[in-house]
């Protein structure tokens, strides 16, 4: 059998499968056009079994509803998991795969996040949402301070991977009070002793409002940064004003704000804590919908 299939190439299929399984899903798919042997091997379960996380069966077993599909191949399962996040852990998280790397992606639903004043019915209201991965999302009503944080065990994430955390949000048509809202975002690993590793300022301004407003926000940022400087550096040149990141469209009807990134080496760093804290609290904010915090591997070029 092995002899027959190695017309031009004398390596048996099992060796080719072994080699291809150490490349990536992207490489393997492209290599299917190399020859008929490659095409056969690329579609084999032994290759895709290695692209799937080693504990994928265990993860899927915590799926909320019994897994609805029977897959004809591991390749089919792989691509299904890339495009269709699965609700796990009693519906509090979703699990998916990053298409290029096969690494694990999670979203922690709003129910699992700590949100300031979440029990105040004037501040937040829970509502069911068909546009969300979760059964419920939370919308701000007459919110004072915006503070959101979430935790994830690094042990659950893929090792040797830089992850980026995003707050996934949306604004209602009548959203107000966010135009000048600035927040600091941070990502902390428990193993770092809880020290802040990264701190950035982001704007929560709903995208697409007038430019004049944006300029005002920029001026406020410059003021904020000026105040952050130590006094003895007063006569040094100010850095050019940094434009804060604004919510970015995801392509699924939601927006996201990057909270920061961290390197997960062996999953031995305990919990990672991701947060967004408003810094210039003023007025009431309504119409912000929070879906959750998503963790995805950083894209590598």
């Amino acid at each position: 059998m092995e002899q027959e299939s190695t017309v031009d190439l004398y390596l048996p299929e099992v060796c080719i499968a072994n080699i291809l399984s150490r490349t990536s899903a992207r490489d393997a798919c492209r290599f299917s056009v190399v020859s008929s042997v490659f095409q056969f091997v690329v579609n084999s379960d032994s290759v895709w079994e290695r692209f799937l996380p080693s504990d994928y069966q265990q993860i899927l077993s915590s799926s909320v509803s019994p897994f609805p599909f029977v897959f004809s191949s591991k390749k089919e399962l792989y691509f299904h998991l890339c495009d269709n996040p699965v609700l796990i852990d009693n519906g509090t998280k979703t699990f998916a795969l990053d298409k290029c790397s096969g690494k694990k992606c999670y979203m922690i639903g709003a129910k699992e996040l700590s949100i300031c004043a979440i029990y105040n019915p004037m501040g937040w209201i829970w509502q069911s949402s068909s546009e969300s991965r979760f059964s419920e999302v939370v919308e701000s009503r007459m919110l004072g301070r915006l503070e959101v944080s979430g935790r994830m065990e690094t042990q659950l994430l893929s090792p040797n991977t830089t992850y980026v955390a995003y707050l996934v949000i949306k604004f209602t048509d009548s959203a107000s009070g966010f135009d000048y809202t600035l927040a600091k975002v941070s990502v902390k690993l428990a193993s770092n002793g809880g020290g802040e590793r990264e701190m950035r300022v982001v704007s929560l301004k709903p995208v697409g409002r007038q430019k004049r407003q944006l300029e005002l926000v920029h001026r406020r940022i410059a003021d904020f940064l000026r105040r952050l400087r130590p006094p003895d550096a007063a006569d040094q040149q100010l850095p050019p004003p940094q434009y804060p990141q604004v919510p970015r469209e995801r392509g699924d009807g939601w927006f996201e704000i990057e909270l920061g990134e961290f390197f997960n080496e062996k999953g031995e760093d305990g919990d990672v804590e991701m947060s967004l804290m408003e810094i210039n609290v003023r007025g009431h904010k309504c119409g912000l919908i929070i879906q959750g915090i998503e963790l995805r591997p950083k894209k590598v070029e």
């Binding site: 017309v7 031009d8 190439l9 390596l11 490489d27 492209r30 290599f31 056009v33 190399v34 020859s35 008929s36 042997v37 490659f38």
Partner: peptide, 16 residues
Amino acid sequence: RTPDQIRENFNINSDF
């Protein structure tokens, strides 16, 4: 790598 580079690397002629 590209499929062409792979053919060269493994000394394979496409049999399609």
